[in-house]
Design a protein around this nucleic acid. Structure first.
Lengths: 290, 290
DNA sequence: AAAATTCTGTATTATTTATTTCAGAGCTTT
DNA sequence: AAAGCTCTGAAATAAATAATACAGAATTTT
């Protein structure tokens, strides 16, 4: 690094606010695969970022370089320096900080959790669960507990758009028995129960099971007692260097399920999403995305 | 790597015997600081190795490339691949199923998001944000939008145990202006705003800012307009093979923050947690954990 | 709603960079 | 030691890449 200790990546990031729309778009494209893309020809970079060549020329000047060539030269210098530095072996996630920093330790743990979680998933069961959730005839109930109701809600918010007849029940609420009155055989329950497993959730699961509903359970590696009733269970690893557990690996599964179900329901979803869009437009809830 | 699994470096070494004196000299120069030198202009490389430009041109052809540009392009590809590599040893996360399965594709994307997100976090700012959140004197407000309120709620549920004076505001609710009446200078807002950035959330942030509150923002890589008001912003990568965005990398940051704040507040937290424990015992909400 | 300002891409020009040609230098072989 | 061969770099040419000028589009301000 020629004149200072900051990388060009840092520099871009830092100047991000002074850049215009097209330039920012370009900046993100550069950071996307850094530094490789910045080492190619200007034209290619421009095309890659969907901006014009002059935009590239202008931006590098804004960053303080005389021209694109000088910018590239600096990138190469940086690369050279990095290759020489034996310590910079990407064992740290957040750079410029010891690997003992919480950011690194936590991320390590989460990646590890994800690896373990995925390693123990049976893909066929996962697909089966997704198709059960995608089945339009049955009603879908989503159940979460004290903490997990956030995951449940997250799933609910998406499913609501993707398919009809979705209900979110919070097992901690004392209103849930009312919901169970309507349950028909073949309805699908997606239940979240992590340690400290909750009595309410178990009761609810038992009743749903008795009524002939299908149960899909998201739990942790020690498995909620509900797993004995569940048709399909997924266990996530949740241990992190914290007094609390991590929901990250479970969220990953949930999001994957959302995406898969979305694909299965594509025809319906499109209509529903468009309709939703219109409603949002009317309420002016969102700014138009630039 | 276009046609095989060997790097260009390997390829050069392998062909070393078929090269002439000047070419070998050049080859060693390239390997000297690989790959940086090969990514510069041909002329510079030639001068660096004390050979003539045509020698470079001839050698890359001998190595099997159509010309220097193609050679460079391959180098860049290799670099790009390498940047992804540290994690790519696991080319399939869920076993017994092709890597094209959604489980694998999605996980790839999320891991990638996490790497990018962490790479762009300034650890010092992160620590600063955590200490701001841990400050017991100020009141803490947590704000989420239509989807992000789940993240907000997740943070809230934990903060509620860790420290006093925590409030969760849903910006989509029309009750939020009431909350703002009480805001004092120095109060801390943690705001979640992901794309499609929400007008309500922006308005809320503006008002809080005007009242002299500190703003900590969790947003995506394109950054909510709120970032201009925010004292500290964290951008997460959120792109996944789905019609929806992923909250996983943001959740990771939130959980790390929870853990860090928890450590900072340890003394207080212990008391609060024990008290909470008692209350749960009394309501028999949880089963005793075995 | 109009005017001013800023931004952005097309087309052009200028520059850099890669390739080819070819003559002479350096080996090898007889 | 001379002929034949291969190798190498200077110079010229060709190709590509980058920088600039300008006009239209988009945004902001008045």
């Amino acid at each position: 690094m020629s004149n200072s200790e900051q990388t060009i990546s840092d520099r871009i990031q830092q100047k991000l606010d002074d850049l215009t729309r097209a330039e920012r778009q370009l900046a993100h494209s550069i950071l996307e695969n850094y530094p490789a893309s910045g080492l190619g020809p200007l034209t290619a970079l421009a095309k890659d970022a969907n901006v014009s060549a002059p935009t590239v020329a202008r931006m590098v000047q804004k960053l303080g370089y005389k021209g694109y060539s000088e910018f590239q030269a600096e990138l190469r210098e940086e690369l050279k320096a990095k290759a020489k530095d034996p310590i910079a072996k990407h064992d740290a996630w957040a750079e410029g900080v010891p690997s003992e920093h919480m950011l690194n330790r936590f991320t390590d743990a989460v990646i590890d959790n994800i690896r373990h979680t995925l390693g123990h998933i049976d893909p066929e069961l996962f697909d089966l669960a997704c198709s059960m959730v995608a089945a339009p005839k049955s009603r879908m109930y989503i159940v979460g507990g004290r903490i997990t109701h956030t995951l449940a809600e997250y799933l609910f918010l998406h499913m609501q758009v993707i398919r009809p007849e979705v209900v979110h029940i919070q097992s901690t609420s004392n209103a849930w028995p009312h919901y169970l009155l309507d349950v028909k055989e073949g309805d699908v329950f997606v239940i979240f129960d992590m340690r400290r497993y909750e009595n309410n959730t178990l009761k609810l699961a038992e009743m749903a099971h008795k009524k002939g509903a299908k149960l899909i359970l998201f739990t942790d590696q020690w498995r909620s007692p509900i797993h004995r009733l569940a048709d399909i269970s997924f266990s996530s690893r949740i241990v992190v260097p914290s007094a609390w557990d991590s929901a990250a690996s479970t969220l990953l599964l949930v999001e994957t399920m959302i995406s898969t179900v979305q694909n299965l329901c594509w025809g319906d979803t499109k209509d529903r999403a468009e309709e939703l869009e219109k409603m949002f437009d009317q309420t002016r809830l969102f700014r138009k995305f630039t």
